[in-house]
Design a binder for these strands. Sequence first.
DNA 1: CTATCGATGTAATCGATGCTCACATCCTCC
DNA 2: GGAGGATGTGAGCATCGATTACATCGATAG
Lengths: 212, 212
Amino acid sequence: MPARPAAPKARPPRPRVRKKAAATYHHGDLRQALVDAALAAIAEGGLEALNLRDLARRLGVSPAAPYRHFADKEALVRAVAADIAQRYAAVLAQAAAEAPPDPLSQFRATGVAAVRFAVRHPAHFRVVYTPGLHDHRGDDDPTRAALTAAQAAGVIAPIPVDAIMLTAQCAIYGLSRLIVDDQLPGGAVTPAQADAMTRAVTDVLGLGFLPR
Amino acid sequence: MPARPAAPKARPPRPRVRKKAAATYHHGDLRQALVDAALAAIAEGGLEALNLRDLARRLGVSPAAPYRHFADKEALVRAVAADIAQRYAAVLAQAAAEAPPDPLSQFRATGVAAVRFAVRHPAHFRVVYTPGLHDHRGDDDPTRAALTAAQAAGVIAPIPVDAIMLTAQCAIYGLSRLIVDDQLPGGAVTPAQADAMTRAVTDVLGLGFLPR
DNA sequence: CTATCGATGTAATCGATGCTCACATCCTCC
DNA sequence: GGAGGATGTGAGCATCGATTACATCGATAG
């Protein structure tokens, strides 16, 4: 019997990338397909719902195939986290670019953008902040930049910049997480409510470091 | 052959609670023992390292025994989370009781206590704040109480209390999580550094809502 | 005292999942 | 057109959560 029987299993045709057609055996770009599929699976059911066999099944590939591209499950998740981190950073940068240049506007805009991202993509937010999956310590956070510039220009009060930045980072991250983890009184949070909360938080913070 | 052979398997003697001795078969208080063992296992290796078979093994009990006391693994983890939540609340309450009664002191004391708990018991902190495991929305947080009382006494600025409380909660929770998840620049955080950061954050917040 | 019954623990087993290994297939490049 | 590396397959192992039928124990009623 030949190694490849007539009708081994009905499989959906796989998208090809490198060559035109001749669709079988090799996938084309399994690595990226895995990352994309994992992204979708996580968005649906969270990180706990991610499972390599299911991913392989959806891509019409054997359960062992993913291991040709990722050493283990965690490596795949790290790739996914890197992907998410990139989009997240892009969203923040764009928000800052579109906002007026004054420090409070910048600060508020990036804060709102960060919280919005968390509200819209809670599962992705959790993954990108899961310890060990991505390093956020080098993030050149637009918030930091805006605040540093503001103090250099003498627009904000003469308190240690580090303290301000730390407080701002904590408040925005804390708000994001509390919303994402549904741990705020009143239950699930709508996008509009999230925006209002972000504005409230940035205002209170602004009271602290803007001169009056 | 008798149902219970002479030397079935060498097992460590199990602690008895109900009666004096005659140690075999029934454990005594397996439920509590499971919670305690889970607490220890989580403290060592985090929630991912928790596994029912290992727990059963350590307690000298069959892998199926835990299912007599918990419907499934999640039920056990929920019991553990409740246990942690109780200790966490007690720690916060004690810190508030020991601090001077003025609002900033109260606020700072509970903040410091919360962050300290996170630094000392990072795995437990993560578990108690894992979504779905424990409901924190009813937490009568001493911080909230302190701030409400303070505003009632006219000690803080006339800004919406809700905004202040939200900001404070976000900042303290955010700081705790950033430390626990090791996502702050500079790597791992010592208890002393954590205290300093907490004080910095509470001070910046205090600038916002304390009248000047 | 003893028969009974509910509570608790056991043994055996299933199904899902991460991962490995030997082998098959295909593409590229000399 | 042949060799070799890259990629995918199939079979299978180990671990773990969970279930089921059965065993054992302790309390209690008669």
